[in-house]
Simulated scan of single mutants.
Amino acid sequence: MYRERASMLPHVVAWRSEVEPGDAPKRVLPDGCLDIIWQSGRVFVAGPDTVAQSPGRAPVGTRFFALRFGSGTGPGVLGLPASELTDRQVPLDALWPAPDVRRLAEAAEPLAALEAVAAARWRSPDRAMVALAEAARAGEAVGAFADRAGLSARHLQRRSIATFGYPPKTLHRIFRLQRAVALARDGESFGRVAADAGYADQAHLSREVRALTGVPLSSLVIPPV
């Protein structure tokens, strides 16, 4: 069982999940976000992924409550650059005072507790980086965005790595992958997916999907439960 909703915080999604009998392990695709996750009383941060992750199957009944921080909002809450968490899972008490994390771990309503703590630590995100995320989702070329935003390539690269955990071209690739998977799950032919998502051709689509997820697009068409 998986459910999500918009958080009270901008650019943040609140989600919850419980492992049920018969659930198969899910491939977690990179999405340009980082998450703070409560898992059966343990709290950790899942940093921004550059490739898909295949976590092992948790025991039946395992519960997850989490906040997913999009558009570069996570670093302000956590108090460190996203680049320090790229492709990593880190216990939250390695980043925050242990007593604060213990209160989260013991909360009767973990999702409400996570939102309250995140709200208390909230810092307004870098508006240029929010715009970069929007541009990447829309498929705007990185160079075109840099010109429009008045940022040098080097400056844009540095701020993107600190905000998202990777350079703007990687962010662009990840959001293009997200568009492709969504279109394929909506029933579009793979040739049409390639054109609509912004790939040069279907072969380019195939190479990129395998590079970022380790499997062909056909394996990703069935949406996660």
Results as ranks from 00 to 15, higher is better:
82 A>K: 13
183 L>Y: 11
123 R>K: 14
58 A>H: 09
166 Y>M: 05
132 L>T: 02
187 G>A: 06
179 R>C: 04
18 E>D: 03
14 A>C: 14
158 R>L: 11
126 D>C: 02
106 E>R: 14
190 F>G: 03
102 R>W: 07
160 S>W: 01
20 E>Y: 00
198 G>E: 09
47 G>C: 12
204 H>W: 03
75 P>T: 03
129 M>W: 01
52 A>W: 02
181 V>G: 01
132 L>R: 02
223 P>L: 06
3 R>W: 10
84 E>S: 09
208 E>K: 12
79 G>S: 09
185 R>F: 06
42 R>G: 02
210 R>S: 07
27 R>P: 15
54 S>C: 09
196 D>W: 05
151 L>A: 00
93 D>N: 14
65 F>M: 01
61 G>A: 02
99 P>E: 06
1 M>H: 14
92 L>A: 01
110 P>V: 08
213 T>G: 01
166 Y>W: 11
169 K>F: 03
188 E>I: 04
97 P>R: 07
61 G>R: 09
2 Y>M: 01
212 L>F: 04
37 I>S: 00
45 V>K: 06
31 D>P: 10
105 A>C: 14
145 F>W: 11
188 E>K: 12
213 T>E: 06
214 G>F: 03
197 A>T: 06
177 L>N: 05
212 L>A: 00
95 L>H: 04
131 A>W: 04
200 A>Y: 02
82 A>W: 03
